[in-house]
């Protein structure tokens, strides 16, 4: 696993540093391959074949497009790669039994955020590629730091949890009391349903939902206040 990670780090370094296109393609390939190999060191989904195939498809798509997004020289392409990575992650959401979140993420990210980002990119960069997109800042340091963290996390995942944690138990702050009871479905069958998610969100987290809604409202007003170009300053 560490060897695979080292290879992918080297690939990332090649891909982010300012080099010839060929070297960067090789680096990106190496980085993606290394990451995928590292992931194979873990236990994949143990279900039927179709599920396993789908996992590798989605995981591979997410990782490859993530690498490409980070290393791409063209911000438009990077945004598109990000959309693809979002799709992959949403596939994984689906495999984890949360179809609603998968759909919501696609709608919010691919449907709204990505489009807005692309819009801003188009608005800002009408003259083609800019020099600052060709240059990466401190590629070696950042790759080393990030990959060190990745290795530490993966190592932790491998080391801890020899036994799977008991189901239906979360951190109990008060002994003998089950926190957030509405977030614990009675059986596996109801886990995927939107109904149980709704009970959790609008039951246990009702106040948080209200606060988040207020936050959205404030952010919307703030964006309206900040963004427009005015002759004399902002509001």
């Amino acid at each position: 696993m560490f060897a695979a990670l080292g290879a992918s780090a080297a690939g990332m370094w090649l891909a982010t540093s300012p080099r010839a296109v060929r070297l960067r393609v090789i680096g990106a390939t190496l980085a993606s391959a290394g990451l995928i190999v590292a992931v194979t060191m873990f236990d994949g989904p143990s279900g039927e074949l179709a599920q396993r195939i789908m996992f590798w498809l989605f995981a591979g798509a997410a990782l490859v497009s993530g690498v490409c997004m980070v290393t791409s020289r063209d911000p438009v392409y990077a945004a598109l790669w990000f959309a693809l990575a979002t799709l992959g992650v949403c596939g994984l959401f689906m495999l984890l039994g949360s179809p609603f979140l998968a759909a919501a993420t696609i709608i919010v990210y691919a449907g709204a955020i990505i489009v807005t980002f692309l819009f801003v990119i188009m608005l800002a960069q009408q003259t083609g590629l800019s020099f600052y997109d060709q240059r990466a800042r401190t590629p070696v340091m950042s790759v080393v730091a990030s990959w060190l963290m990745l290795a530490a996390i993966m190592w932790t995942f491998q080391r801890v949890g020899a036994a799977p944690p008991p189901a239906n138990e979360g951190p109990a702050l008060v002994a003998g009391e089950i926190p957030n009871p509405l977030s614990r479905p009675a059986d596996e069958a109801t886990f995927h349903t939107l109904r149980s998610l709704g009970r959790s969100v609008f039951g246990d987290y009702l106040y948080a939902v209200e606060i988040a809604g207020t936050l959205l409202l404030v952010a919307g007003i703030g964006a309206i206040a900040i963004a427009p170009r005015r002759t004399e300053g902002t509001i």
Partner: peptide, 12 residues
Amino acid sequence: SNYALMMWVGLL
């Protein structure tokens, strides 16, 4: 970027 990297190192 420098500040972000320092945050990253701190996280590490």
